[in-house]
Nucleic acid binder design. Structure first.
Lengths: 246, 246
DNA sequence: CGAGCTATTGAACGACTTCAATTGATGTGG
DNA sequence: CCACATCAATTGAAGTCGTTCAATAGCTCG
């Protein structure tokens, strides 16, 4: 259930151009601000760790060692209840932190899994907090940003229909990618339909159908995991209005 | 829509006995730890602010001034999207903080509303951070705790049925109240069915029906907003098992 | 090539929502 | 002070959207 097969050799991001605007629109707020953490740490001697697809960065219950800054690749964080229910709490990319939720805990409280080949920077939290005055501030901002992000998704999942949720997800992902300097109109989903559905509290079939409907409306073009956003404005409208048939 | 009538004169908590165990079980983790913040600040000269039911502590968009520690009363925090969709992100009681999500922002990002008469302590964040070394640490822990709490509710809302969600809510509330020294078996809900439904992503009718079914199963006794938990163990089992008819 | 995984689509079902009516509590103005 | 308006809660009946079950096709990998 946890280990889905995925294109294992695909390398994460080839960074066409950088120094892009940190314009984070859509549902998530504060995600792009993480880029500044990277700036802050760029000449700090950090332990780097490479991971490949389907590899666990850490699992819930393991002793918490480091805080990880995603430098490349695509990850998911997931909660698993003791009775087996699973919930993906977010998809993480460059600039995001893994392990934030367990900052005050002796053990990790979620699983972090690579969906792709990637690179992580291990942050020695205690050291950095003392040496770098701005570090604590940035961590606080990241924590608060995660809360806002979660609340916005709780709002979305609680008030939007299936098509709207999928539209919201695509727009959010597009905005995040754009903030990293990638195309906002051509998305490569790194997760399965099942994982996407899990995150959006939908079944994988409903995700498929929602994508098909959005495609039928001419808002997007679906080709497996590659999504092209044809009408960003209309998609944004579709995210809001329950039934908007173009 | 936002302003529901409620018993306006009811005073919040009469604190039967304190110094209770901080045993925070159920869905929420880390909620009880907030009590230690109160200990930390108990002989600090703090501005106190009293509020009455239905009064806004702050609204999204207002300039962020203070961080509020709930000392008495019952509050909700809520998000409102620009197109009118509303989502209650949590119910807050003694030891909880209001405004945490906007720590790094110039304006508040959610509404905070009193559901009851209550008292708040205004925390001068910048000052306390410098003067009290443990303060920053506690704030970080509260932030991380809120993230875990949110993720656990995302898991619950995404994987549980209506009756299970209501059961989870009651158990969570009971555990939090017990952590504050109150009875874990006799709950006085301070929110309307509509607010409870909003938080649980259900309609008010579904909440009512779920309560009725749990009562019919003999797990709880419902009398308007007063709920007695008759069979905690069975309720806990009902939270897990989809259809458990005693 | 066959096993396994992912994605897509159809059909039937079911859980929750929506609409509607009733009751009781609260509050207000004539 | 009571008639009337408002709001909260409950329950029933009908409707809907998403789920569940099932079948098919494409793809990767051993």
């Amino acid at each position: 259930m946890l280990l889905e097969a995925a294109s294992p050799s695909a390398v994460a991001f080839h960074a066409p151009h950088f120094g892009a605007v940190p314009a984070v629109a859509g549902v998530v707020a504060g995600g792009g601000s993480a880029r500044s953490l990277e700036q802050l740490l760029k000449d700090w001697p950090l332990q780097r760790r490479c991971v490949h697809a389907k590899q666990y960065v850490f699992r819930a219950g393991q002793p918490r060692q480091a805080l990880y800054l995603v430098h490349a690749g695509f990850f998911k964080t997931a909660l698993v209840s003791d009775d087996g229910r699973e919930k993906i709490t977010g998809f993480r990319m460059r600039g995001d932190l893994l392990g934030l939720d367990a900052l005050d805990q002796p053990v990790y409280t979620c699983d972090a899994v690579a969906l792709d080949t990637g690179e992580l920077w291990e942050l020695p939290y205690a050291q950095l907090r003392e040496r770098l005055p701005q570090f604590q501030e940035r961590i606080t901002a990241m924590l608060a940003g995660e809360i806002r992000r979660d609340w916005n998704w709780m709002l979305a999942l609680g008030t939007l229909g299936a098509d709207q949720r999928v539209a919201a997800f695509l727009l959010d992902l597009a905005a995040r990618l754009e903030g990293l300097g990638f195309s906002a109109s051509r998305l490569m989903l790194r997760m399965t339909r099942a994982e996407l559905g899990n995150f959006l509290s939908l079944t994988l079939e409903t995700v498929t159908r929602a994508l098909s409907r959005l495609q039928a409306r001419g808002l997007i073009a679906v080709d497996g995991r590659e999504i092209r956003i044809l009408e960003p404005a209309a998609l944004q409208a579709a995210q809001r209005d329950p039934a908007l048939c173009h």
